[in-house]
Amino acid sequence: MAKLLYSATMSLDGFIAAPGGDMSWLTEHLADPDPAAEGLVDRIGAIIAGNGTFGGGDPNEGTDKEGAFGGQYDGPMFVLTHRPPAEPVPGITFVGDLRTAVAEARAAAGDRYVNILGANVARQCIEAGILDEVLVFVAPVLLGDGVRLFDSPGGTRVRLEQLEDEPAHWYRVVYP
């Protein structure tokens, strides 16, 4: 069964987007290839994104690298939202609840990863006890404010276990 992986690039001070969800800060940090990131897209069978992430800014907007993983991903995408658009969006499935999104994405992914995009969806997966792994790429910048990698005021501690055969910031989520 497909594992749920939350992957994101964050600033050294823990933000994945600047205030207002601005992703343009990432552009300069995506210029150099990262060996761990390059192999990742082939291991992803489906994506679940939050509506904010889906409708948010793309650091590669207007270029040939626009889209998930610099335009390299071309597969099933599920957007978790209570407000789907009136008109269908080709290649996108809008889903109203987390459990349904996960079930549909796992079925679509087969034995590859379901990649979670968006801090809110990742938090929901942690709270539901269904997130399997976390992969974080750290960009050498301090944003000072914005959307945190994880933000759960009053939340509980989550234990992570580093995966030995993966990059230094790839962890398995350990539930009690």
Rank of each mutant, 00 (worst) to 15 (best):
G96W: 01
L117H: 00
Y113H: 12
A17Q: 09
E133Y: 09
G110K: 11
W25Y: 03
D32E: 11
T63Q: 09
V89Y: 02
L40Y: 04
V41R: 08
A36T: 04
V89L: 02
R112I: 06
A122T: 03
G57W: 00
A103I: 13
A119G: 15
P90V: 04
V147R: 03
F94K: 01
W25K: 00
A109M: 08
G45W: 06
E127S: 11
A37T: 12
F137G: 12
G129N: 13
R43V: 14
R123I: 07
P35Q: 10
N120I: 05
F54H: 14
R123M: 13
A18F: 14
D132K: 07
D132T: 04
I92M: 14
I130T: 06
P59R: 10
A139P: 12
V41N: 04
A18L: 09
P76K: 08
Q72W: 01
I130L: 08
R123N: 06
A18D: 09
A17F: 05
F69H: 12
L80M: 06
N115S: 15
D97W: 10
G52S: 06
V41C: 08
A18N: 04
C125T: 12
S24N: 11
C125S: 10
H82A: 15
G39C: 05
A49V: 02
V79K: 12
P33S: 07
V138Y: 09
N120W: 11
R99K: 11
I44L: 05
G110W: 13
G56T: 02
I47K: 01
V89H: 02
D34N: 07
I92N: 11
A107I: 05
G57F: 00
G70I: 13
G52Q: 02
G39Q: 14
D58N: 05
T27W: 04
D42A: 10
R99P: 13
A109Q: 06
G67W: 08
A37L: 14
F150E: 10
G118F: 08
A46V: 05
N51E: 12
N60T: 02
R148S: 12
L80H: 03
G52H: 03
I47T: 04
F54D: 02
E28W: 01
G118R: 12
I16S: 02
D22V: 12
G56C: 09
P84I: 05
V89M: 02
N60C: 05
A86F: 09
G70F: 05
G57P: 10
V121N: 07
